[in-house]
Nucleic acid binder design. Structure first.
Lengths: 254, 254
DNA sequence: CTGGATCCATGATGATACTG
DNA sequence: CAGTATCATCATGGATCCAG
């Protein structure tokens, strides 16, 4: 009798959590739904390499466990998947893991790696939220000609990314493509924006703030693939309070 | 050519993190090392059901990725595994996932589920840290006759659990066994402590605070297995700011 | 006893093609 | 658009054995 690989049978809150969201792909599905409801093919686009079989299986499991809901309207082909409150409550955990990944598992994009605009924007939002002290309200509308609309905004406390058109008037509107956006964030200056033909509109002050804050991301991480700007960097380049000092060991928290 | 199951090949910080700690058992190993260095068999004890083959593999992977270090002193049998700074930096992510598990994936202990004292104490520390406003400094020494020493303490900002004897003088000392501890936390009153023969020493004030804070855990969760005190509860019983209201759906964060 | 290694079985996942 | 179906492969579990 082989033990069920999907459970741990421990009396432990972390084991319980991992039984629900610890399977391969699961947390990536949650991540993509945290920015807003999506269709099956929207998720397939973002989860490059997943097979439809696996995605179906994950969606069914998540639905059964009450983390997502499927919106199947009769007479409509599309099925929209969205998080329940329990699912959306994973946001702090997803953010904590992403933040760790940014600092300790960073590497420049590989040659054959899929880059979806949403995940680049997620990383930008995360860096702006966690490294800058600037949390004053803002709303940036990013229109990607090849991938729809995104909104990066701060409510005065936190920066978040959402998929879809903005609710309310944006301070800054950016119109470009995924490819140009990727180029731009490595050097988010007005001149680079012009060179790439990116349309950025808004008040001079708001646009300057946009450039400055996106600059914190460019400074924080290395986007160029190995060989373009020098040595590949497998070491983290972002510092936090208790940062690596070359393998020194310590004992729980700071 | 089958794709490597251990990578995602996405340019995404969460994917990068999950490639390192997303495998089965990996985050549970991290969790057990977050409370202090452990030996192979210490980990085997806590990771009930893991095979030595899998544990060896996980330890090698984590060592290679720089998240743990193995302390192999010549002339000594034991190998001590401990977190590097990069590994210990996973603490916020582990805590966030555990906290989600406590609220949304709780269930009473199953009949055949392994309960290790360390994981019960982890959950207690987490609840005290996140639900109470009481973060004044404290140091509780828990001596388990069958499982060594633990310390739950607050530095004035956060409550943490560590494995091993306390550094400094504890405010409260609790001497008992794993089984009695499990019984006690369901009803952490002085009378129940006496009935179980648990030795609790310290000033009256400190001991009263201990009982009160452990009581927040008892009130927060249901420890009894189904049938003992009534209906099984698969629903979470702890409330946080944005709590489930029966499947209502919303859009990213609160 | 600790700290593993080995062999085989099984189930989860991937590749590819196809369908209502 | 939203999946199913079929086959192949790899990770994990069970059981057992072993060296210092």
């Amino acid at each position: 009798m082989t033990r069920n690989v999907r459970t741990y049978d421990h009396f432990c809150v972390l084991s319980r959590a991992l039984e629900r969201i610890g399977d391969r792909w699961t947390l990536l599905v949650i991540r993509d739904l945290l920015t807003g409801a999506k269709r099956f093919t929207d998720l397939m686009d973002r989860l490059g390499g997943i097979t439809p079989k696996t995605l179906t299986q994950r969606l069914r499991e998540l639905e059964e466990e009450g983390l997502i809901e499927a919106d199947r309207e009769p007479g409509r082909r599309e099925v929209w998947y969205r998080l329940t409150v329990a699912g959306a409550d994973l946001a702090p955990a997803v953010d904590a893991l992403s933040w760790w990944g940014l600092r300790h598992a960073w590497r420049p994009p590989g040659r054959d790696e899929v880059l979806h605009a949403e995940h680049l924007l997620t990383a930008i939002s995360l860096v702006i939220d966690r490294t800058g002290g600037d949390r004053a309200p803002a709303r940036w509308h990013i229109e990607l000609e090849d991938d729809g609309d995104y909104v990066i905004e701060s409510d005065g406390h936190h920066w978040t990314l959402t998929f879809g058109r903005p609710q309310g008037v944006p301070d800054v509107t950016i119109r470009t493509t995924t490819g140009d956006l990727k180029q731009f964030v490595t050097d988010p200056t007005p001149s680079q924006g012009s060179a790439l033909g990116i349309q950025i509109t808004g008040t001079a002050k708001a646009v300057a703030r946009f450039h400055r804050l996106v600059g914190t991301f460019a400074k924080a991480v290395v986007l160029q693939p190995p060989g373009v700007t020098g040595e590949p960097s497998r070491r983290p380049t972002i510092s936090s309070q208790a940062e690596d000092e070359g393998g020194r060991v310590f004992q729980r928290r700071s």
